[in-house]
């Protein structure tokens, strides 16, 4: 038996929307600690890892040790788009061998003594569990900046090139691209905004390095401004995947690992 409720369906929709940028379907792993979703995109460029802890939900109950539900993200997103922002979202699942396995999605809107209700059932599919495990890495470099700023730069670069080059230095980040017709060059410096800390850029780069990334992926990560207006990028070097993270309350959040492009 599984039941979880959320008063902000918009946030869950944003999470599913972010995942569906790269992944068609994935296993939702419900445990007593909360919900975890992880998947590698078909091009093996980005690994998406989402945690929504039990305390992140307004109500959360999972009686099973671990419940693995294979979900088509596109269909789930369609359902979530039907939910009004002022509704209470409820996800539920009952283990019943006799019936088709499905995840129930319900939206309730308070109307005084009564409630308006919309109910959906999402048919589940079997997906082989992932074999890859995210290794524990000791990140030596870190950068924190406004998500909107990363989005703006990635969107601009995407107009010119499929590849963006990030050069992390001790006191600056250079983001650039070049094509046959033009080049673009952005410089981002650490800065503290005393009136609005969320505008600040902080960097702690111990070992400067340069990495090329696929622009489209960085742009899609930066769409997560609804999740967190700040993005934290953790790195080691050009050979190790970079981590882009957007944290939420109660130890929850979305985290991406992205592989760089290497020059032979």
């Amino acid at each position: 038996m599984l039941e979880c409720k959320l008063q902000e369906p918009k946030v869950f929709r944003s999470v599913v929307e972010a995942m569906s940028e790269h992944i068609k379907e994935c296993n939702f792993e419900f445990t007593r600690e909360g919900l975890k979703m992880q998947a590698l995109d078909s091009s093996h460029i980005a690994f998406t890892f989402v945690t929504l802890s039990a305390t992140w939900w307004n109500e959360y109950r999972c009686d099973d040790e671990a419940l693995l539900l294979g979900v088509n993200l596109e269909t789930l997103l369609k359902i979530l788009k039907c939910g009004p922002d002022n509704s209470l979202l409820a996800l539920s699942y009952e283990n019943d061998d006799d019936e088709v396995s499905e995840l129930k999605v319900k939206f309730e809107v308070d109307r005084g003594e009564k409630k308006d209700v919309a109910e959906f059932a999402l048919k589940l599919t079997h997906i082989d569990p992932m074999e890859e495990e995210v290794p524990e890495l000791t990140w030596t470099n870190e950068l924190e900046m406004p998500t909107q700023e990363l989005f703006r730069i990635a969107r601009d670069i995407s107009l010119f090139s499929e590849i963006m080059v990030l050069e992390f230095d001790k006191d600056k980040l250079r983001i650039s691209c070049s094509s046959k017709e033009s080049t673009a060059d952005y410089l981002v410096h650490p800065f503290e905004d005393s009136t609005n800390a969320s505008n600040s850029v902080r960097m702690n780069i111990e070992a400067p390095f340069k990495v090329s990334l696929t622009t489209h992926y960085v742009l899609s990560f930066a769409k997560n401004k609804n999740i967190n207006e700040r993005v934290v990028i953790k790195m080691i070097d050009a050979e190790t995947p970079l981590m882009f993270s957007f944290s939420m309350k109660e130890g929850s959040g979305i985290c991406y690992y992205i592989a760089g492009r290497l020059t032979d």
Binding site: H44, I45, E133, I163, T240, Y257, A259, R261, T263
Partner: peptide, 14 residues
């Protein structure tokens, strides 16, 4: 053009 690294390979290696 730089070659795209394969994330699956990276995680299998570690």
């Amino acid at each position: 053009t730089p070659i795209q690294n394969d994330l699956a390979e990276f995680y299998c290696m570690v």
